[in-house]
Design a protein around this nucleic acid. Structure first.
Length: 247
DNA sequence: GCGACAG
DNA sequence: ATCTTGTCGC
């Protein structure tokens, strides 16, 4: 696939360009659509009408490896990867500049044009509403979803402990975010739960681009997977681990 | 100054 | 995310 908004392409930069990176994120958020503007639906995903790509990273040694796995109707139809040296160090809120370069490169090398991108990390649940899912989604102008295993910012509207499988709790903007306080920026989503044992933390799902928070959750459940992570992301995770050993 | 902090 | 073996439990 191809980057259509090159001005937003995350560059390998020094961590001292913080102001420039934050300024770009505000522009990315401004260009993003946090409502449904796509043909992708849970039904189109299940039927195989839409293709879905899961993306994840690994950091063997000092390098960054990104893996992308594309599925159609539950079947893997393509896999790609990319490696980058000297990734910027991790800074909360600036993840897109650390992981973005290899992520964009891996997606650019895909033959297939995915209809939906799913990332390991936040989308709109971000200080400036521009997590990596939003940033990459806007670069390709492709519908995207952020799936995080922990909460970067924002505040759950209710308890997220002991949520039954399939249940959701809204995440609203807090005063650390550029979004008006109280704006629903995503959902805690209990993708899996076990009968009586130790409780599992929910996933924190947020719109990346061209999808609403509610549709994002519905699309994730349509992606399937017997584990906590949606299958496309789980497969990308495993592929990244596999590549880590080879590199 | 203190606490929070995707991967 | 990464450094890392075995181990407790369903």
């Amino acid at each position: 696939m191809e980057v259509v908004e090159d001005r937003f392409r995350p560059r390998e930069v020094d961590s001292d360009d913080r102001d420039a990176m934050e300024a770009m994120q505000l522009e990315v958020a401004d260009a993003a659509a946090f409502e449904d503007a796509t043909e992708v639906t849970p039904e189109s995903i299940r039927s195989g009408e839409s293709t879905v790509a899961g993306v994840d990273q690994a950091f063997p040694g000092g390098r960054a490896v990104s893996a992308a796995v594309v599925l159609r109707g539950g079947e893997v139809i393509e896999r790609t990867s990319a490696v980058r040296s000297q990734p910027m160090p991790y800074v909360p809120g600036l993840l897109a500049f650390r992981e973005g370069p290899p992520v964009i490169a891996a997606l650019e090398s895909l033959e297939v044009e995915p209809d939906l991108l799913i990332f390991d990390g936040s989308g709109r649940i971000h200080y400036r509403e521009a997590g990596i899912a939003t940033h990459a989604g806007v670069c390709f102008d492709t519908p995207s979803i952020g799936v995080a295993k922990s909460l970067l910012c924002g505040r759950p509207r209710g308890p997220t402990d002991e949520l039954p499988a399939g249940e959701t709790v809204s995440i609203e903007a807090d005063d650390s975010m550029s979004a008006p306080e109280g704006t629903v920026v995503g959902h805690a989503y209990q993708s899996r739960q076990f009968p009586e044992s130790k409780r599992i933390n929910p996933l924190y799902v947020s719109p990346g681009h061209r999808l609403s928070a509610a549709t994002a959750v519905a699309c994730l459940s349509a992606c399937g997977g017997e584990y906590k992570l949606p299958r496309p992301v789980r497969l990308a995770d495993q592929y990244a681990d596999e590549l880590k050993s080879e590199v």
